[in-house]
């Protein structure tokens, strides 16, 4: 008897929840629950971004729906990207991504690209920083590039991500703009165990290519010396503001480690319009501005149209580079 009863309750709950989701998508947006997905484990940059977005939208009352954060890690975001293909046409899933959504596709790790999603908005950005130990013989990024022009093996570049991923590509973009040839011969060394900064402190690599946010503290303490960053203007305050841009040193390129939100492919029109509205309002709230400041993020808001154009341009830029370096 008890078993029958609980089975019945289960069926009722299952049916009502099924009906409610279907109904919500057909009739009005937002639905009762919108899954906010971080395509990586808890604790990383993607995770922090989507949690901050969900919290800000909830606290400010801009989105009246449950927004549980789901972690779907694997394959540098590719596992979630595959999953999103099974959700196409739906409106109850929002995921955060950054340049790897382009890079994993261009280097052949996944067949899906940003074109298999619905870009919703670009929100924030960090920049690349090129950092040397305090006693390094290189004082400017120009000197590094000149050394590489002489001998591409003379400067060993360290980074956290795998070869062909962000830390590698951001350096090569700058090297290419500086006129270094034979990009393929530059030695990039990947330190994925979290020891990258220690390797730089110990002088085991000549230069590390990383995020400005990751080395800010060490640069302030004077143990590491930042040669350049890749924004189009000076960033931050104090010693961080003293880091020159690569542009100032005559290398005409910028690199942005942006983060933005994406829905599944063919997201319903009313859902896209809803998020356009909600996110545009969100980036103007004091809560969001406080979150930017707290996390050291730079505001980089673009709405869905501008973001889609930006993605197309950036994708072409990376594609040319990856083709010339890796031949794939």
């Amino acid at each position: 008897m008890i078993r029958l009863k609980s089975m019945f309750t289960g069926i009722v709950i299952a049916t009502t929840s099924l009906i409610s989701t279907n109904f919500a998508i057909a009739a009005d947006y937002p639905p009762h629950t919108i899954n906010m997905v971080a395509p990586a484990g808890a604790g990383g940059g993607w995770d922090l971004t989507i949690r901050t977005v969900a919290k800000t939208l909830k606290d400010t009352g801009l989105v009246d729906a449950n927004m549980p954060v789901v972690n779907r890690p694997g394959g540098g975001g590719a596992v979630n990207l595959s999953y999103m293909q099974t959700q196409s046409g739906k409106g109850d899933l929002i995921s955060v991504y950054s340049p790897p959504i382009l890079l994993t596709n261009l280097t052949g790790l996944t067949q899906y690209s940003y074109q298999d999603t619905t870009p919703l908005a670009r929100l924030i950005t960090d920049y690349a920083a090129f950092v040397v130990p305090e006693n390094s013989k290189y004082k400017t990024i120009k000197e590094v590039m000149n050394a590489l022009k002489q001998d591409p093996k003379s400067v060993k570049i360290g980074g956290t991500s795998a070869a062909g991923s962000m830390d590698h590509i951001q350096f090569l973009l700058v090297a290419k703009a500086a006129g270094v040839e034979n990009l393929r011969n530059i030695d990039y060394v990947s330190f994925q165990n979290g020891s990258l900064i220690a390797q730089a402190l110990g002088g085991h690599v000549d230069l590390i290519s990383t995020g400005l946010g990751d080395v800010a503290g060490l640069v302030e303490s004077g143990k590491l010396h930042a040669l350049a960053q890749t924004a189009d203007k000076r960033i931050g305050t104090g010693l961080i503001a003293e880091i020159p841009t690569v542009k100032e040193q005559g290398i005409d390129v910028i690199f942005e480690n942006w983060r933005g939100l994406f829905g599944p492919k063919d997201m319903p029109k009313e859902a896209v319009a809803y998020w356009h509205d909600a996110l545009q309002k969100m980036v103007a709230t004091p809560e969001w501005k406080a979150a930017l400041k707290r996390n050291g993020w730079d505001d980089a808001y673009q709405d869905e149209q501008a973001f889609t154009e930006f993605l197309a341009d950036t994708n072409t830029q990376y594609k040319t580079l990856i083709k010339s370096v890796f031949g794939r």
Binding site: G76, T107, L109, A162, G164, H168
Partner: peptide, 18 residues
């Protein structure tokens, strides 16, 4: 593989990439 960026023994399974 971190140093080359190539996949090893993943047999096309995305979850094995990590």
């Amino acid at each position: 593989d971190g140093q080359s960026g190539l996949q090893r023994f993943t047999f096309g399974v995305l979850e094995l990439q990590t």
